[in-house]
Every structure is written in structure tokens, then in C-alpha cells.
Simulated scan of single mutants.
Amino acid sequence: MIEDPPDFSVLGFEGAPHDTAVFPWRAGDDALGSMADEPVATRTVVVRPVGADVGLLLARVVLALTALLDGARALFDLPRGHGAADAVATLVAGYGFAPASALVTAYGWAQLVAGVLVGLGVFASFAASALVAVGVVALGVSLPATVPTLAVGPVEGPLFGLVLAAVVVLVGPGRISGDADRAWFRAQTPVGVACMIIGIGTGLTVLLALRG
């Protein structure tokens, strides 16, 4: 059996025990001794400086222009009359890749499409993963000629392109892009790692399966 609460009015506390002037802890969260007085857990929010987004924009532009020029050279023989497309096909066949014609076509379109998307910053990490694959293949065929002589020249271009593409894949396109605040932009770490694995895996597959 529950007993009635004591009558505090006999002590001179009018309205007790519900009078908050006498019992302030009954006034709610803003009163003395309430939950509002307890410490609240907080977390640090890291804000990326504007310079980082500008730097990523510059990296994307350089990478995109390089990819577009390489793709146009392989597909459309640009600049005209210099035999650029034939030179690319001869180079691919010389490294032992087959079928050379189909690979040159796939390479050219991959460069063009990836270049446009990377430049605009739309699905940038996904597009740059194709350029990572190209960089892995180019580095793979250049290293054998470099290691015996310790010459850096043959691997400079492939290494530069591979690292620049990897930066866009892993870090993302930055806020000056079409991807800004998209769902995959906010989940950049898992997206970047997944795209990097896809790019490296594709490049190694081309090296190991399509080269005689």
C-alpha cells in the first residue's frame, strides 16, 4: 500500500512538495540538479580549407586534359596527319598486347570519358579509377626497361599520371565539383578505397591476361 506524501505545509512551505521555489529540482531540465547540468559529449568537426579544394580542382584539370589529349590522339589521330593513332596501335602491339586494335579503341574511349567526368568532377572517383588502371598498365610495361639501367625517364609520365589519378580517387574531387555533397561524396573513404581496388585490379588484369 502506497502512503500519502507527507504534508510539508505544516513546516510553512506553501504548495509543497510541488512548489518549485522550495524544491527547484522539480522544475524540469532548467532547474538545479537537472540533466541539463550534466556534461554533454561533443566531437570535433574538421573543416577542410578552401585551398585544398582549389588544389584538387587543379589536379583534376591537369589529369582531365592529359586524358582527353591521349584519348583524342588514339581515336581520332589528333593532331591530324602525324599518324598518332597508328603510333599508339604500334606501341600497344609492340608491348605484346592483343587484340591491339580493340585495346586501342577501349583505351581511347576510356581516356575521353574519364577525362570529361574528372574535369567536371562528376563521379570523379569512379572515372579516375579507369585512369588508375591505365597508369598501372603503363607503369607495368615501362618498369622492365627502367630497372636494369636505373633510368627514371621511361617511368616519369606513367608514374605521374598514376599518382595524380590515385589522389583524385582516394581524396575525391573536392567541393568545387559536380559531386559536392552527393551521397558518395560524403562517403569518400569507402568509395575511394573501393575505386582504387577496382582500378588496380583492372590494370593488373590487362597486364596479365591480355599481354603475350
Rank of each mutant, 00 (worst) to 15 (best):
M1K: 11
D4I: 06
P5A: 04
D7L: 11
D7I: 10
V10S: 11
G12Q: 09
F13S: 00
E14P: 07
A16N: 04
T20S: 09
V22N: 05
F23I: 15
A27T: 13
A27E: 14
D30V: 10
A31V: 03
L32D: 05
G33Q: 07
G33E: 05
S34M: 11
A36P: 01
A36H: 10
P39W: 11
V40Y: 09
A41P: 08
A41M: 13
R48V: 09
V50N: 08
G51P: 01
A52K: 05
A52D: 11
D53Q: 05
D53F: 08
V54S: 04
G55N: 07
G55P: 05
L56A: 05
L57K: 02
L57E: 00
L58V: 15
A59K: 03
V61L: 15
L63F: 08
L65D: 03
L69E: 03
L69T: 06
D70F: 11
D70C: 06
D70P: 00
G71R: 04
R73K: 12
R73P: 00
D77I: 08
P79C: 04
P79W: 12
R80F: 08
G81K: 10
H82D: 02
A84I: 01
A84E: 14
A84Q: 14
A84W: 12
D86S: 10
D86W: 02
A89F: 01
A89C: 01
T90Q: 08
L91N: 06
V92P: 02
G94N: 10
G94K: 11
Y95P: 00
Y95R: 08
A98R: 13
A102G: 15
V104M: 05
T105I: 15
W109N: 03
L117Q: 06
L117S: 05
L117G: 00
V118D: 02
V118Q: 04
G121Q: 06
G121N: 09
A124D: 01
A127M: 13
A127T: 07
A130W: 08
A130G: 07
A133Y: 03
G135K: 03
V137A: 03
A138W: 06
A138M: 14
L139T: 10
V141W: 10
V141A: 04
S142N: 12
S142R: 14
L143F: 11
A145K: 14
V147F: 14
P148C: 07
T149M: 05
A151G: 11
V152H: 06
G153E: 12
V155N: 04
V155L: 12
V155G: 00
E156P: 03
P158R: 08
P158D: 03
P158I: 09
L159R: 04
G161K: 04
L162I: 07
A165H: 08
V167Q: 06
V167L: 15
V171C: 05
G174V: 02
R175F: 07
I176Q: 01
G178W: 12
G178N: 10
D179L: 14
D181Q: 15
Q188K: 12
G192R: 07
A194S: 15
A194H: 06
C195F: 13
I198N: 12
T202P: 00
G203T: 02
V206W: 13
L207G: 02
A209Y: 13
